[in-house]
Simulated scan of single mutants.
Amino acid sequence: MTLPEPPESSSRPLSGRRALITGASRGIGADIARAFAAAGADLVLTARDASALEEPAGRLASEHGVRIAVLAADLAAPEVPDRLWGDAATLLGGLDVLVNNAGISHPETVDQLDSAHFDETLRVNLRAPALLAARAGAAMAAAGGGAIITIASAAALRPLAEHYAYSTAKAGLVMATRTLALELGPQGVRANSICPTVVLTDMGQRVWGDQPDKAAPMLARIPQSRFAQPHEVSDVAVWLASDAASMVSGTEIPVDGGYLIS
């Protein structure tokens, strides 16, 4: 048996790759777009409001010499997940990587659970990314391979109070990602999940970083005693999309400072 050669070291490990990143207008998605562009990938970025992507897309394309297209995509709409991969692939002449990042959260206790919030969370956080990943995975398999990266959550692996619907959806998405790795691995498709703790995006800073009393109990459960920065998630995503992770598939990578072992 001939073993694959180790990947060459490069400051642009995603050069020549074409990636679709959902939920790319802010937060973790925006930082993953930055990191992928810096790593040399051509991109299709999506958000519900495509106009919010125009300026950052143009800036990243100019700074890093990559192609970047934008698409409006409301993943809560029933028909969007089935067609999004094909629409995005048309813009770049094919795609090699999917980063399933878009998601929502309605924090509420179980006794105050709103059924409409529950349904919306499952539509956006489970149904849409699972269907999109299935369509993407099938297309990648037919084309000879690719990488699917799910931005899940530590809440998918350890229950988090006031996140009943969110934890349920993310846990389901982790299992969907594992199943893709199992079924499509023989065709060269790798699928993995990243499971962060609280990430100090602008929103994370407002909700957690600027509220010490709320943050303290959560920080007490994280051995490193801090929350994650967006680039710490993006760096893992770049690695998973690259040849450096060519033997990594069907797993969950915590970016949590030890939260899941505490």
Rank of each mutant, 00 (worst) to 15 (best):
R123A: 15
M247S: 13
N101M: 06
I32M: 06
A171E: 06
G258P: 05
Y164R: 12
E79P: 02
T121H: 05
A141M: 07
D210K: 12
H231I: 06
Q229E: 15
I253N: 02
A77L: 11
E232R: 07
L20M: 06
I68N: 02
A245F: 01
S25D: 12
F227E: 10
G103W: 07
T2P: 13
A88M: 10
L43W: 04
P159S: 12
N125T: 03
D74W: 10
T2Q: 13
R226F: 02
R59A: 14
S249I: 03
L122D: 09
P212R: 10
G40E: 09
A133F: 05
S15D: 12
I261A: 14
I222K: 11
T150C: 11
A72K: 11
A88E: 09
V174I: 14
A244C: 01
P217M: 05
T251I: 13
R26P: 01
A33W: 03
L260H: 10
F36C: 04
R135W: 04
A88P: 06
A156Y: 04
P129C: 09
S246R: 15
S115G: 02
V44C: 07
M140C: 09
R17A: 05
D243Q: 14
G94M: 10
T179Q: 15
A216F: 04
A244Y: 04
A128H: 03
V233F: 07
G204T: 12
F36N: 03
R190S: 05
V99M: 02
A69D: 15
A165I: 08
L84V: 04
A161I: 07
A139T: 06
R17W: 00
G65R: 08
V233L: 04
I194D: 01
A165Y: 11
G209V: 08
L180A: 13
R190D: 04
G16Q: 12
A77T: 14
E55A: 15
A241P: 00
G188H: 11
V70P: 03
S15Q: 15
L20H: 08
A161G: 13
R135V: 15
A245G: 06
D42W: 02
A33D: 04
T22E: 09
G144F: 07
W208L: 06
H163Y: 13
A241W: 00
K214P: 01
E120I: 00
S225M: 10
A169D: 03
S9V: 14
S153C: 04
W208C: 08
V99W: 02
P78C: 10
A237R: 06
S10I: 07
W239E: 05
P129E: 10
V66C: 06
L260G: 02
P129K: 11
A191R: 10
L126D: 09
L200S: 06
A88D: 09
E63N: 06
A143P: 00
D235F: 02
V97F: 01
A47W: 12
E183A: 13
G146L: 00
A152Y: 06
A220G: 14
G86C: 05
V189C: 05
T168V: 13
A176R: 03
R206A: 13
R206K: 15
L43T: 02
G250A: 11
R17E: 05
I194L: 14
F36I: 00
M1T: 11
A24D: 10
E5W: 07
D119Y: 00
L84I: 06
D87I: 00
